[in-house]
Protein backbone atom coordinates (compact mmCIF):
# COMPACT_ATOMS: atom_id res chain seq x y z
CA UNK A 1 0.00 0.00 0.00
CA UNK A 2 2.54 2.56 1.09
CA UNK A 3 4.89 1.98 -1.84
CA UNK A 4 2.01 2.93 -4.08
CA UNK A 5 1.50 6.16 -2.18
CA UNK A 6 5.22 6.85 -2.17
CA UNK A 7 5.76 6.53 -5.86
CA UNK A 8 2.54 8.29 -6.78
CA UNK A 9 4.27 11.58 -7.54
CA UNK A 10 6.58 9.86 -9.98
CA UNK A 11 4.24 7.45 -11.66
CA UNK A 12 1.02 9.44 -11.51
CA UNK A 13 2.31 13.01 -11.34
CA UNK A 14 1.78 15.45 -14.16
CA UNK A 15 3.84 14.74 -17.28
CA UNK A 16 5.75 17.95 -16.64
CA UNK A 17 6.91 17.03 -13.14
CA UNK A 18 7.75 13.52 -14.29
CA UNK A 19 9.90 14.92 -17.07
CA UNK A 20 11.68 17.26 -14.67
CA UNK A 21 12.44 14.36 -12.32
CA UNK A 22 13.82 12.14 -15.07
CA UNK A 23 15.89 14.93 -16.60
CA UNK A 24 17.42 15.69 -13.21
CA UNK A 25 18.28 12.05 -12.57
CA UNK A 26 19.78 11.57 -15.99
CA UNK A 27 21.81 14.79 -15.89
CA UNK A 28 23.32 13.85 -12.51
CA UNK A 29 24.00 10.34 -13.76
CA UNK A 30 25.77 11.66 -16.85
CA UNK A 31 27.90 14.02 -14.79
CA UNK A 32 28.90 11.18 -12.49
CA UNK A 33 29.54 8.53 -15.09
CA UNK A 34 30.60 10.30 -18.30
CA UNK A 35 34.21 10.94 -17.24
CA UNK A 36 34.52 7.18 -16.70
CA UNK A 37 32.99 6.39 -20.09
CA UNK A 38 35.44 8.83 -21.62
CA UNK A 39 38.28 7.08 -19.78
CA UNK A 40 37.20 3.71 -21.12
CA UNK A 41 36.78 5.07 -24.64
CA UNK A 42 40.20 6.70 -24.82
CA UNK A 43 41.86 3.65 -23.31
CA UNK A 44 40.91 1.71 -26.43
CA UNK A 45 42.15 4.29 -28.91
CA UNK A 46 45.66 5.15 -30.04
CA UNK A 47 47.44 8.22 -28.70
CA UNK A 48 47.29 10.06 -32.00
CA UNK A 49 43.53 9.67 -32.24
CA UNK A 50 43.07 11.63 -29.02
CA UNK A 51 43.61 15.06 -30.50
CA UNK A 52 40.06 15.38 -31.69
CA UNK A 53 37.37 17.95 -31.24
CA UNK A 54 34.65 15.40 -30.61
CA UNK A 55 33.64 14.21 -27.16
CA UNK A 56 34.18 10.52 -27.78
CA UNK A 57 36.30 8.78 -30.37
CA UNK A 58 35.41 5.77 -32.41
CA UNK A 59 38.81 4.09 -32.64
CA UNK A 60 39.84 2.73 -36.04
CA UNK A 61 40.54 -0.50 -34.29
CA UNK A 62 40.30 -1.36 -30.63
CA UNK A 63 43.75 -1.13 -29.11
CA UNK A 64 43.72 -3.92 -26.56
CA UNK A 65 47.51 -3.80 -26.62
CA UNK A 66 47.19 -0.72 -24.39
CA UNK A 67 45.80 -3.05 -21.76
CA UNK A 68 48.51 -5.61 -22.32
CA UNK A 69 51.13 -2.91 -21.70
CA UNK A 70 49.28 -1.71 -18.62
CA UNK A 71 48.88 -5.23 -17.29
CA UNK A 72 52.51 -6.21 -17.75
CA UNK A 73 54.45 -2.98 -17.23
CA UNK A 74 52.03 -1.64 -14.65
CA UNK A 75 52.94 -4.60 -12.43
CA UNK A 76 49.20 -5.07 -12.13
CA UNK A 77 48.99 -8.61 -10.75
CA UNK A 78 51.74 -8.14 -8.18
CA UNK A 79 50.26 -4.92 -6.82
CA UNK A 80 46.78 -6.41 -6.84
CA UNK A 81 48.04 -9.34 -4.80
CA UNK A 82 49.68 -6.97 -2.28
CA UNK A 83 46.56 -4.83 -2.00
CA UNK A 84 44.40 -7.87 -1.50
CA UNK A 85 46.65 -9.48 1.09
CA UNK A 86 47.19 -6.32 3.14
CA UNK A 87 43.52 -5.36 3.06
CA UNK A 88 42.24 -8.79 4.02
CA UNK A 89 44.69 -8.95 6.91
CA UNK A 90 43.74 -5.43 7.98
CA UNK A 91 40.04 -6.37 7.98
CA UNK A 92 40.62 -9.52 10.02
CA UNK A 93 42.77 -7.74 12.59
CA UNK A 94 40.43 -4.73 12.86
CA UNK A 95 37.45 -7.01 13.43
CA UNK A 96 39.24 -9.09 16.06
CA UNK A 97 40.90 -6.27 17.95
CA UNK A 98 37.91 -3.97 18.02
CA UNK A 99 35.50 -6.76 18.92
CA UNK A 100 37.67 -7.87 21.82
CA UNK A 101 37.99 -4.31 23.07
CA UNK A 102 34.26 -3.72 22.60
CA UNK A 103 33.48 -6.82 24.66
CA UNK A 104 35.78 -5.74 27.49
CA UNK A 105 34.29 -2.25 27.46
CA UNK A 106 30.60 -3.12 27.33
CA UNK A 107 30.45 -6.44 29.19
CA UNK A 108 33.28 -6.68 31.71
CA UNK A 109 33.29 -4.86 35.02
CA UNK A 110 36.24 -2.54 35.54
CA UNK A 111 36.73 1.05 36.55
CA UNK A 112 38.67 2.37 33.59
CA UNK A 113 36.38 1.06 30.85
CA UNK A 114 34.84 4.48 30.14
CA UNK A 115 38.23 6.15 29.97
CA UNK A 116 39.72 3.48 27.70
CA UNK A 117 36.76 3.72 25.35
CA UNK A 118 37.15 7.48 25.17
CA UNK A 119 40.87 7.23 24.45
CA UNK A 120 40.38 4.65 21.71
CA UNK A 121 37.58 6.67 20.08
CA UNK A 122 39.74 9.79 20.10
CA UNK A 123 41.65 8.24 17.22
CA UNK A 124 38.68 9.23 15.03
CA UNK A 125 39.54 12.91 15.41
CA UNK A 126 43.24 12.62 14.57
CA UNK A 127 44.03 13.43 10.92
CA UNK A 128 45.93 10.49 9.40
CA UNK A 129 48.18 12.72 7.36
CA UNK A 130 49.55 14.50 10.41
CA UNK A 131 51.13 11.20 11.48
CA UNK A 132 53.00 10.71 8.19
CA UNK A 133 56.10 12.66 9.24
CA UNK A 134 56.64 11.25 12.74
CA UNK A 135 55.65 7.72 11.74
CA UNK A 136 58.17 7.80 8.91
CA UNK A 137 60.82 8.64 11.51
CA UNK A 138 59.67 5.88 13.85
CA UNK A 139 59.47 3.24 11.14
CA UNK A 140 62.87 4.05 9.70
CA UNK A 141 64.44 4.02 13.17
CA UNK A 142 63.15 0.52 13.91
CA UNK A 143 63.75 -0.69 10.34
CA UNK A 144 60.09 -1.17 9.62
CA UNK A 145 59.93 0.86 6.41
CA UNK A 146 59.38 -1.14 3.26
CA UNK A 147 57.67 -3.94 5.18
CA UNK A 148 54.04 -4.99 5.19
CA UNK A 149 53.76 -3.87 8.82
CA UNK A 150 54.39 -0.23 7.98
CA UNK A 151 51.04 -0.28 6.14
CA UNK A 152 49.15 -2.84 8.15
CA UNK A 153 49.66 -1.20 11.55
CA UNK A 154 48.47 2.30 10.63
CA UNK A 155 45.63 0.90 8.50
CA UNK A 156 44.39 -1.12 11.45
CA UNK A 157 44.97 1.64 13.98
CA UNK A 158 43.03 4.23 12.00
CA UNK A 159 40.12 1.92 11.16
CA UNK A 160 39.79 0.69 14.74
CA UNK A 161 38.04 3.68 16.38
CA UNK A 162 35.06 3.59 14.05
CA UNK A 163 34.90 -0.19 14.26
CA UNK A 164 34.93 -0.01 18.05
CA UNK A 165 32.20 2.61 17.98
CA UNK A 166 29.95 0.44 15.81
CA UNK A 167 30.65 -2.71 17.77
CA UNK A 168 30.08 -1.30 21.25
CA UNK A 169 26.78 0.07 19.99
CA UNK A 170 25.77 -3.28 18.55
CA UNK A 171 26.96 -5.29 21.54
CA UNK A 172 24.88 -3.16 23.89
CA UNK A 173 21.78 -4.12 21.94
CA UNK A 174 22.42 -7.87 22.30
CA UNK A 175 20.75 -9.33 25.40
CA UNK A 176 23.04 -10.92 27.96
CA UNK A 177 20.78 -13.91 28.63
CA UNK A 178 22.51 -16.22 26.17
CA UNK A 179 25.89 -15.43 27.69
CA UNK A 180 24.58 -16.05 31.18
CA UNK A 181 23.19 -19.42 30.19
CA UNK A 182 26.52 -20.36 28.64
CA UNK A 183 28.40 -19.37 31.78
CA UNK A 184 26.05 -21.49 33.92
CA UNK A 185 26.75 -24.40 31.57
CA UNK A 186 30.43 -23.96 32.41
CA UNK A 187 31.74 -21.99 29.43
CA UNK A 188 34.98 -20.12 29.99
CA UNK A 189 35.21 -16.42 29.21
CA UNK A 190 36.95 -16.84 25.87
CA UNK A 191 34.33 -19.35 24.77
CA UNK A 192 31.74 -16.71 25.61
CA UNK A 193 33.60 -14.02 23.68
CA UNK A 194 34.37 -15.96 20.53
CA UNK A 195 31.87 -18.81 20.59
CA UNK A 196 28.69 -17.12 21.81
CA UNK A 197 28.92 -13.37 21.17
CA UNK A 198 31.00 -13.18 18.03
CA UNK A 199 28.59 -15.18 15.84
CA UNK A 200 25.77 -12.86 16.94
CA UNK A 201 27.79 -9.85 15.79
CA UNK A 202 27.65 -10.86 12.11
CA UNK A 203 25.83 -7.75 10.83
CA UNK A 204 28.22 -5.34 12.50
CA UNK A 205 31.22 -7.43 11.49
CA UNK A 206 30.04 -7.13 7.89
CA UNK A 207 29.68 -3.36 8.22
CA UNK A 208 33.09 -3.00 9.84
CA UNK A 209 34.71 -5.15 7.15
CA UNK A 210 33.20 -3.09 4.34
CA UNK A 211 34.17 0.21 5.95
CA UNK A 212 37.72 -0.97 6.60
CA UNK A 213 38.10 -2.27 3.07
CA UNK A 214 36.73 0.91 1.48
CA UNK A 215 38.92 3.11 3.67
CA UNK A 216 42.16 1.30 2.99
CA UNK A 217 41.83 -0.21 -0.49
CA UNK A 218 42.63 3.04 -2.28
CA UNK A 219 45.06 4.46 0.27
CA UNK A 220 48.42 5.51 -1.16
CA UNK A 221 49.81 8.41 0.89
CA UNK A 222 51.18 6.14 3.60
CA UNK A 223 52.22 3.56 1.05
CA UNK A 224 54.24 6.06 -0.97
CA UNK A 225 55.81 7.47 2.20
CA UNK A 226 56.75 4.24 3.97
CA UNK A 227 57.54 1.93 1.04
CA UNK A 228 60.50 2.19 -1.29
CA UNK A 229 60.70 -1.09 -3.20
CA UNK A 230 58.04 -2.90 -5.22
CA UNK A 231 57.76 -5.67 -2.67
CA UNK A 232 54.66 -4.44 -0.83
CA UNK A 233 53.41 -1.63 -3.07
CA UNK A 234 49.66 -1.61 -3.57
CA UNK A 235 47.36 -1.16 -6.55
CA UNK A 236 47.39 2.66 -6.80
CA UNK A 237 51.10 2.37 -7.67
CA UNK A 238 50.18 0.79 -10.99
CA UNK A 239 48.92 4.23 -11.98
CA UNK A 240 51.48 6.32 -10.13
CA UNK A 241 54.51 4.58 -11.57
CA UNK A 242 53.19 3.74 -15.01
CA UNK A 243 52.26 7.33 -15.83
CA UNK A 244 55.86 8.33 -15.18
CA UNK A 245 57.23 5.59 -17.41
CA UNK A 246 54.80 6.08 -20.27
CA UNK A 247 54.50 9.84 -19.97
CA UNK A 248 54.00 10.33 -23.71
CA UNK A 249 51.83 7.28 -24.38
CA UNK A 250 48.51 8.72 -23.27
CA UNK A 251 46.40 5.81 -24.46
CA UNK A 252 48.38 3.35 -22.35
CA UNK A 253 47.94 5.65 -19.36
CA UNK A 254 44.19 5.59 -19.85
CA UNK A 255 44.33 1.81 -20.00
CA UNK A 256 46.25 1.50 -16.75
CA UNK A 257 43.77 3.81 -15.02
CA UNK A 258 40.81 1.79 -16.25
CA UNK A 259 42.51 -1.43 -15.21
CA UNK A 260 43.34 -0.15 -11.73
CA UNK A 261 39.81 1.07 -11.16
CA UNK A 262 38.27 -2.17 -12.39
CA UNK A 263 38.57 -4.48 -9.35
CA UNK A 264 36.84 -2.07 -6.97
CA UNK A 265 34.11 -1.18 -9.48
CA UNK A 266 33.37 -4.82 -10.31
CA UNK A 267 33.22 -5.83 -6.65
CA UNK A 268 31.02 -2.84 -5.94
CA UNK A 269 28.57 -3.75 -8.69
CA UNK A 270 28.38 -7.35 -7.51
CA UNK A 271 28.05 -6.54 -3.80
CA UNK A 272 26.09 -3.34 -4.38
CA UNK A 273 23.34 -4.09 -1.87
CA UNK A 274 25.60 -5.17 0.97
CA UNK A 275 28.00 -2.29 0.46
CA UNK A 276 25.22 0.30 0.34
CA UNK A 277 23.85 -1.10 3.58
CA UNK A 278 27.28 -1.23 5.20
CA UNK A 279 28.26 2.28 4.21
CA UNK A 280 24.95 3.67 5.34
CA UNK A 281 25.09 1.95 8.71
CA UNK A 282 28.69 2.93 9.30
CA UNK A 283 28.28 6.53 8.26
CA UNK A 284 25.04 7.31 10.03
CA UNK A 285 26.23 5.88 13.29
CA UNK A 286 29.87 6.92 12.96
Amino acid sequence: MHTKAKSSAIKHGSPFSRAVIWILLIVVAIIQIFPLVWLLDFSLASSTEMFTNGLLIIPEKFRFDNYVKAFVDGNFLWYLKNSFLINVLAVVIVVLVSFMAAFAITRMHWKMSGLVKMILLMGMMIPIHATLLPNYKIYSTINMTDTMWSLLIPYVAFSMPQALFLMTGFLESIPKSLEEAAVIDGCGIFRVVFGIDMPMMKPSIATVSIMTFLNNWNEFMMASTYLSSDKWKTLPFSVLEFTGEYSSNYAAQFAVMALTAAPAVIVYIILNKQITKGVALGAVKG
Binding site: V28, A29, Q32, I33, P35, L36, L214, W217, N218, F220, L235, P236, F237, V239, L240, M257, T260, A261, A264, V265, V267, Y268, I269, T276
Partner: peptide, 12 residues
Protein backbone atom coordinates in the same frame (compact mmCIF):
# COMPACT_ATOMS: atom_id res chain seq x y z
CA UNK B 1 25.77 4.83 -11.00
CA UNK B 2 25.89 7.73 -8.53
CA UNK B 3 28.17 5.86 -6.15
CA UNK B 4 30.65 4.34 -8.61
CA UNK B 5 33.15 7.25 -8.71
CA UNK B 6 33.42 6.87 -4.94
CA UNK B 7 34.90 3.38 -5.02
CA UNK B 8 37.59 4.36 -7.53
CA UNK B 9 41.05 5.09 -6.20
CA UNK B 10 42.03 8.71 -5.73
CA UNK B 11 45.12 7.91 -7.80
CA UNK B 12 42.92 7.14 -10.81
Amino acid sequence: VFFIPNVISVAV
